[in-house]
Amino acid sequence: MLKIENVTKKYSNGITGIENFSLSMADSEIVCIAGPNGSGKTTLINCVLDVIPMTSGSISFNGLPCGKEEYKQSIAYVADETILIDSLSGEEYIDFISAMYGKHDEVKRNSLIELFSMQGALKQIVSTYSHGMRKKLQLICAFMLECKLIILDEPTRGLDVESIVSLKKLMKKYQAAGGSILMSTHNLSAAESYCDRFSIISGGALIAEGTAEELKSRYDADNMEEVFMKSSVLSERSERIEEIIAGM
C-alpha cells in the first residue's frame, strides 16, 4: 500500500510544488492523478520516487519508508520525458535496467518485446528511436521488473493505437496479479475505462478524489473532462475560456 501523508515540496526558488498532499493507494489499484500543467503532478511523482527531497510529510510503500533501497526496488517508473541513455542500444538498456533491479525473467522480457513489436529495433542505438519507440522501451523495462508499484507519467503519449490497446490490456493483467499503478495523464476519457480512482490536483493541492462515477455525480458532469474543468480549472476559468474562444 502506498501512503502519501501531508507531503509539501518547496523549491529553493520559493515556488511551492505541492502542499499538504495526501493519498492512499491499496494493492491492485490503478489511481490516476490529473491536473493542469504546472499543478504539481511531476513534483509529486518525483517525491514518491525520491528523486527530489520533500520539504515535509512522509511517503511509504508497504511500510517501507521513501528513499530506502527496498522501497526503490518495489517501484518501476516510466517518465513522461522519455529519459533514456541515448548512447546505448535498446538491448543494452534493457540489460542495464534488469541488472540494476537484479531481475532477469527472460520469458517475460521476450514477451514484452514482442508485445510492443520491438524485436527489430533492439540492436539499434536509442538515439535513433522515434518518440513512440522510446516510450515502448520504457514500458518494456517497467513491466519486465515485476515491481509491486509502477508509476506511469503520460504512458500513452506518442504510442500508436496498437500499442495503446496492448498497454491497457497489460495494465489490467498486471493489476489482476496484485500490482498497483499510479499514473498521470491528460487523456481522461481513456483513463476512465481503466482507472479505479482519480485524484485531481491543482496549484499543488488535492482538489477532488474518488471513483469516476463518484466525481461525475459530485460535479454534476457527464464525463471526466467536465469533472476536471469544474474541479481543477474552476468554473470562473471555464467561463473565461468560453469567452476567449468566442472572441477569437
Binding site: L49, D50, V51, E69, E70, K72, Q73, I75, Y77, I83, L84, I85, D86, I97, M100, Y101
Partner: peptide, 13 residues
C-alpha cells in the same frame, strides 16, 4: 546528467 537522472529513481544508494 541523463545517466544520473535515470539512476536517480533506481534502487541504488
Amino acid at each position: 546528467s541523463t545517466l544520473e537522472q535515470v539512476l536517480s529513481w533506481m534502487p541504488i544508494k
